[in-house]
Nucleic acid binder design. Sequence first.
DNA 1: GATGAATGAGAATTCATTCAT
DNA 2: GATGAATGAATTCTCATTCAT
Lengths: 225, 225, 225, 225
Amino acid sequence: MTVPHRADARHNRARVLAAAQAAFAEQGRAVPLDVIAGRAGVGAGTVYRHFPSKESLLSAVMSERIERLVAEIGALTGDSADPGATFFAAFERSVEQVVLNKALCESMASGEQVRVEPGVRERYLAALEPLLSHAQEAGAVRADVALHDVMTLIAGCATMRAAGGAVGTSVVMDGLKAATAVTKRNETRCVECGDPVPPAGTGRPARYCGNACRQRAHRRRHASG
Amino acid sequence: MTVPHRADARHNRARVLAAAQAAFAEQGRAVPLDVIAGRAGVGAGTVYRHFPSKESLLSAVMSERIERLVAEIGALTGDSADPGATFFAAFERSVEQVVLNKALCESMASGEQVRVEPGVRERYLAALEPLLSHAQEAGAVRADVALHDVMTLIAGCATMRAAGGAVGTSVVMDGLKAATAVTKRNETRCVECGDPVPPAGTGRPARYCGNACRQRAHRRRHASG
Amino acid sequence: MTVPHRADARHNRARVLAAAQAAFAEQGRAVPLDVIAGRAGVGAGTVYRHFPSKESLLSAVMSERIERLVAEIGALTGDSADPGATFFAAFERSVEQVVLNKALCESMASGEQVRVEPGVRERYLAALEPLLSHAQEAGAVRADVALHDVMTLIAGCATMRAAGGAVGTSVVMDGLKAATAVTKRNETRCVECGDPVPPAGTGRPARYCGNACRQRAHRRRHASG
Amino acid sequence: MTVPHRADARHNRARVLAAAQAAFAEQGRAVPLDVIAGRAGVGAGTVYRHFPSKESLLSAVMSERIERLVAEIGALTGDSADPGATFFAAFERSVEQVVLNKALCESMASGEQVRVEPGVRERYLAALEPLLSHAQEAGAVRADVALHDVMTLIAGCATMRAAGGAVGTSVVMDGLKAATAVTKRNETRCVECGDPVPPAGTGRPARYCGNACRQRAHRRRHASG
DNA sequence: GATGAATGAGAATTCATTCAT
DNA sequence: GATGAATGAATTCTCATTCAT
């Protein structure tokens, strides 16, 4: 049902999605549905045919944005000459996407989870995770930062940009590069949840705090939908 | 009109303000005016007598919060033994105030200027400015950060906290220090203010740089609202 | 909250209730709320101030009707010279109330419980119950009929009347008496309450058993709502 | 247009009719047309090709139900050993058909004539009429009940059943059997409309109140569609 | 001054009906 | 002929603001 078979319907769905993306980006979540319909050049009923509620339209827009981001990040992943640069490029692209979207900023600032279609969040995290861990292994990023923290840092940087700040992102990126400041010496943290990893006497330091997180990361890597 | 002469009116104005503060903080800008009036135990008309519009009520609430913050910062200013610690303490207090207020977070994330009464913004900036410049002179904060940038950094940190991030503020604070000196190896830093902790020869490494920070962290842990 | 203190509000509430009663009665449950508001000469918001939803307005209307019915039945209860006549009078008044209200008919025919305010149904049943049991003790009504059955018989008679049937109620009432005694030949019965009419030696046979029924039928003929 | 020539179209028409019957029966008249189309496995347009409006679809469904009932009643008619039993069997079958159909109950309770295709009502009445008059002649049914009254009694019994009443129909049937209670002695009523028939001094008592009803009954006897 | 009632302009959502594919 | 997409009027409910009491 997501994508209709008929060409004209597919066309209209795309127009609605584009109009909604623009309207949400400019006016935020509170933009009336009629405005979106008007911008798309369709009736309100048509919007509802494609998306059963305003909420689901918002989530479709968000999902589409994030999928695009996943694709961009995927393109970056290959070039791993400089893991730090690659990670920070992905970070910046993410911030930019969020900034462009007022509705997304509002959602994040409200402390609500941004609602997206199933699997989208997982795919995004799966795309970002190797970039983060490679950068951390290369010493380009603080080791005590978990994937989840990166998400909130992105949200914060977006707010800064929305608030008109120029240096915000660079400050955060500097903070990410700083050698493990607050973290206790030699402590390692789970790259999934950020909890401390019990030190193992020998061998390579553990990346996860336990099986639960290892499994979760694994699932995400293979998540499809 | 700002503050009425009659005692009962003054009393009502204060009750409305308190109710509005709580309501905006908990439910955000979209909270209906009737809810605020109800919480204040007055009629909707009374709210309008004191504040000509919902917008102006919001701005009064914001102004009152910020004035309180200005007072807190003013209290810190005296103790200038460690300019870096003083600045970061003010920074954190500011972040906390913002985080407590959903309406404020929303406003900042929307990229709109938070509307406050005339002079309030100026007084806040005037309170923060000496702290920033002293900290910069002492080399505790990057010199290329302007007062205006600090404001957006505060907004960003609030968003991170609202989004559930734990390390956001510490990353930003590290970033603010970063240009000065990359953290020395083996050095431990105060988990409250990020300053270096004098190495103790024996026992468990200290978590705080001194009693002030220990106490501050304690208070925060038991803060109620 | 049910009844406001201010006189004008009480007045408006009554107007809304009256308008809703009329609108539901004439057009059924599906009548738009705007129509009710218009008939009451108030804005839609005023309707919602007094009744939080259309559903609750309907239930208030129903409850008010039924309370009126309870009062009428209460007035009948005193006159217990003829328990059968008293019961059947209450029965007929109930049918008439239901018939006047299209919304009520619809609800009953849908097999849904008619929603009324708490206690109303109970009061109605409490008013009807002694009438039924006295009539049964006097042998005027079949002993195998429960109070609940009477309710559905009322609903059925209302539908018959709504469908334009003239004899429906008398058939049902005969059925209720049937087990006791098959009507005697040559006997005439009151067209209002179904009781036997004392035979008059001369002239046109009497249609009513007495002045009470004649008057009641007259009133009904000129009832307005 | 009623029945298409092409086999697939005829097939679709039947599917729509069956789906509509089920949907109306379960959910009442307010069931959305898309739901009906969905249950039939066709598009909304197809429904409109076969039935020009929702109203006409409803009427087609009703007509089809009633035609089926006519057939059942026709089967009963032959066995005239016990005219009373035959009539009451037809009565009960009719009630059951109505109860099964929420839309039909709603229509009847609204006091609106149930809209059926031309001739259908007439055929139904024509099937029921001889059963009623034979039962009346045999003294098994009150003589003062007209065909039209039987229709409303059926509607009433259906409402009682929908309202959960168990004894409703039996009470009505008892009422129908009771010897001519309310009717004035020797009075005859038109078997078509139920109005009193002016007494003729001589010959067989008139069955109709006038030429209009005689003609109407005649037409019904020979109605074809 | 306080109250809370009234207003009425939206906002989301549904659905019978039409029409391009 | 069939399909299902598009339409847009209608409906319920909300809420900032005004105003009579």
